[in-house]
Design a binder for these strands. Structure first.
Lengths: 242, 242
DNA sequence: TCAATCATCTTGTCGTACAAGTTGAGGGTA
DNA sequence: TACCCTCAACTTGTACGACAAGATGATTGA
């Protein structure tokens, strides 16, 4: 027997157009962000349904949205878990936005230039000893890497450490997102001219950062990323000529 | 009578750990992005359920994720519609990221500087007559606006037109996202020093852009946004002194 | 002690039922 | 005719119950 399906009335309901799913989504999200949920494990859907006095359907739909926002991870049989990763959602959004606005790798490379240049300058001012060491290691990795895959990884790590050492988390966040999209670009340019130009660029930047010389770091980095963009421009033509 | 709930087998299923929801989500998303769905109206959930041979629950959960990705809009009674807006999802992600990484408005203002400076320089090189006119109008709007709200709008519009006139959609996208988060910052700085400093800054940038002088545009803009950051830094102290 | 087995918990999907919002077609009135 | 009202049909929102499928820990057998 089904009762009356009635209990729709929310006591204070001044905004009746917000659905139950939205409400549950908000409450769960705030709990996640404030770090409730010991060990990052969410209660079973059934329990949450009881607690929030809604059906499991509503809980599930809210959780799908949380998963879509990359806040939790769901898989059959196990409880949902809080996910700590960061920039994947941004990457996806950037991809969608690029698709919609017909943006290209060239547009991306163009945006990258002022950001990387500023990051290099800030890093030269602010980098600590530990990050400086990591930067050295990243450069050596690039020098010693053989496989294109590991070359790309070393390349990305260099730029990531640099972004991190600005102390500004937003730079790190943005560059993480852009880096993922630029992976394809790196593949092409490294495939084109080999790893040598990139290595020289990194070494120049490293030297300037080590000297704590923001201006030199900025111009070295600018040169480096502009070279990458030039290679990207040159590429299609080579393809055309075969 | 309920049959056997059986029809679980997917013919080619080599990746059984991907749920039905994910599959439906992907298929719907690609249809949305390729611009199916005449007039941007999705078919009823029931139809989609029949077409994809899944239950309406699965369709609903996938649609919740699409909504969470800001690709569609759902409301009771009406069919779901494709949503064309862009950067809201990015804004939300940035907010979450800022929350998680303890980033502040100051970090945001810092990131803004190289971006706005480069945008101004690019705009000076590339802006067309129409956008130049819009830029003039935005400046006049700021001069004539009385209410803080409309001042903020005019301020934001100026920066937006500039980003648009670079011709690089990624700049526009990023600045849209940052602008929303900076709204709070603008409120504070305009409340502090009035609209006059911002107006002078905009006029200086406009003049340089009109002269097609990238270097001057860059430095005028840099000055402008650095001033905003300085005001932001000064603010908490004033509050303390009362 | 260790490994196989199994009871149990949890999520994934289904199907149905009904409430609540939307929309367009008639129908009544001026 | 023009306009507003009502209402039926459609669609989404929520609830509930059933069962399949994956995960996990306890029990059992060697």
């Amino acid at each position: 027997m089904i009762t009356v399906t009635a209990p729709q009335k929310r006591e204070g309901a001044e905004l009746p157009n917000l659905g139950l799913v939205d409400a549950v989504f908000d409450r769960l999200r705030s709990r996640i962000l404030t770090g409730d949920f010991v060990d990052g494990v969410l209660p079973p859907q059934g329990e949450l349904a009881t607690e929030f006095e809604v059906s499991r359907s509503v809980i599930r739909e809210a959780m799908q949205r949380l998963q879509s926002s990359r806040l939790i991870e769901m898989s059959q049989g196990r409880n949902a878990r809080v996910k700590l990763a960061g920039s994947e959602a941004l990457i996806e959004n950037l991809q969608v936005a690029m698709h919609r606005s017909q943006a290209t790798l060239l547009h991306l490379a163009e945006v990258r230039e002022p950001l990387e240049a500023e990051i290099a300058a800030l890093a030269a001012e602010r980098i600590g000893d530990e990050d400086l060491l990591r930067l050295h290691i990243a450069v050596r990795k690039l020098a010693e890497a053989k496989a294109p895959q590991s070359q790309i990884e070393a390349d990305m790590e260099f730029h990531r450490v640099l972004a991190e050492s600005t102390g500004n988390p937003i730079y790190l966040f943005l560059m993480d997102a852009l880096a993922e999209l630029l992976r394809e670009s790196r593949r092409k340019t490294i495939g084109l001219g080999g790893v040598q130009p990139a290595l020289l660029g990194h070494q120049a930047v490293l030297k300037a950062v080590q000297r704590r010389d923001p201006k030199a770091a900025r111009s070295a980095m600018l040169e480096h990323v502009q070279a990458a963009r030039r290679d990207l421009v040159a590429l299609p033509q080579r393809k055309g000529r075969k």
